Computed example of a mutant assay.
Amino acid sequence: MSIRFLCDTHRQQLLRSKVVAETRWDEWMEAGREAYAERNWVSALRYLGCSFELSELMLGLERLPDAPSLDRYMLAGHYLAECFARCGDSHLQQHCLLAVHYRLLKTLQSPEGRGLSLQRNVEISLQMLERHYRAENRLDELSHCRRESLRLLQRCYH
């Protein structure tokens, strides 16, 4: 399942220029964080959702994602997940958290991705997942993901 916040026209416009896309991401994240801080969940969802989708689009343009692109994706995804939690939608919260985590692991599994310093990203992602699953009283469902993530980190960084 892919969550869509951007219309096709905006998506195409943003894909034409990395500089414009990065500028829009910054603007939307700032607006989303402000709305989140003001507990304006509907507005926060719109801005954070657009930021998340845009960061995903930008990752898709890169043969090998770099650390700043992955950081943008992770930050937008985690903010969006928290916003979904505030709106009472734990299913979409989980969706965002897992999307971020699996993207990090997929990058780390690639030969080129092993050169990136993603250990802290994966650890933070696991913490966010653990917090979600603990709140849902489903922590046992996370054990396999945690074990495999830590195994991959061990293989890549030790």
Rank of each mutant, 00 (worst) to 15 (best):
residue 117 S to R: 12
residue 85 A to N: 04
residue 115 G to C: 10
residue 74 M to G: 01
residue 61 L to V: 00
residue 26 D to R: 14
residue 73 Y to E: 06
residue 28 W to S: 00
residue 23 T to L: 13
residue 59 L to Y: 05
residue 105 L to W: 06
residue 81 A to V: 07
residue 117 S to F: 09
residue 33 R to I: 13
residue 27 E to T: 10
residue 18 K to R: 15
residue 18 K to S: 15
residue 54 L to E: 08
residue 126 L to C: 09
residue 130 E to T: 10
residue 30 E to A: 14
residue 78 H to C: 10
residue 69 S to K: 10
residue 55 S to P: 01
residue 62 E to S: 15
residue 63 R to E: 14
residue 75 L to C: 09
residue 80 L to I: 08
residue 35 A to C: 06
residue 129 L to K: 00
residue 59 L to P: 02
residue 115 G to N: 14
residue 107 T to F: 05
residue 49 G to P: 04
residue 83 C to S: 04
residue 57 L to Y: 12
residue 94 Q to C: 14
residue 34 E to N: 10
residue 99 A to V: 10
residue 38 E to P: 00
residue 68 P to A: 11
residue 129 L to S: 08
residue 31 A to Q: 12
residue 85 A to V: 01
residue 30 E to M: 11
residue 53 E to M: 02
residue 70 L to W: 08
residue 96 C to F: 04
residue 41 W to V: 12
residue 83 C to N: 02
residue 103 R to I: 00
residue 56 E to T: 09
residue 28 W to T: 01
residue 12 Q to G: 04
residue 126 L to K: 03
residue 92 L to T: 08
residue 83 C to V: 11
residue 16 R to M: 11
residue 40 N to K: 11
residue 115 G to W: 09
residue 29 M to Y: 05
residue 33 R to E: 14
residue 61 L to M: 14
residue 84 F to S: 02
residue 58 M to S: 09
residue 122 V to C: 12
residue 112 E to Q: 11
residue 29 M to I: 11
residue 59 L to K: 04
residue 13 Q to R: 13
residue 78 H to P: 00
residue 43 S to D: 12
residue 18 K to A: 15
residue 83 C to I: 02
residue 79 Y to Q: 13
residue 7 C to I: 11
residue 51 S to F: 01
residue 119 Q to G: 11
residue 98 L to V: 15
residue 128 M to E: 08
residue 84 F to G: 05
residue 9 T to F: 14
residue 39 R to V: 06
residue 60 G to H: 11
residue 37 A to I: 02
residue 72 R to H: 13
residue 118 L to C: 10
residue 42 V to L: 07
residue 67 A to M: 11
residue 32 G to V: 01
residue 54 L to M: 02
residue 10 H to E: 15
residue 113 G to E: 01
residue 44 A to V: 07
residue 52 F to I: 07
residue 45 L to T: 05
residue 52 F to Y: 12
residue 41 W to G: 01
residue 91 H to V: 15
residue 81 A to D: 06
residue 116 L to T: 07
residue 49 G to E: 05
residue 105 L to I: 15
residue 120 R to P: 05
residue 14 L to A: 10
residue 123 E to F: 03
residue 49 G to C: 11
residue 19 V to Y: 08
residue 100 V to A: 05
residue 116 L to W: 09
residue 10 H to W: 13
residue 74 M to W: 00
residue 130 E to R: 12
residue 57 L to N: 04
residue 91 H to Y: 11
residue 70 L to K: 02
residue 80 L to G: 04
residue 9 T to R: 09
residue 94 Q to L: 11
residue 70 L to C: 11
residue 76 A to P: 03
residue 12 Q to E: 15
residue 118 L to E: 03
residue 67 A to S: 10
residue 21 A to F: 06
residue 22 E to I: 04
residue 111 P to M: 03
residue 21 A to I: 06
residue 52 F to R: 02
residue 37 A to M: 03
residue 46 R to W: 01
residue 100 V to Y: 02
residue 17 S to N: 15
residue 116 L to E: 10
residue 121 N to V: 00
residue 20 V to N: 08
residue 58 M to Q: 12
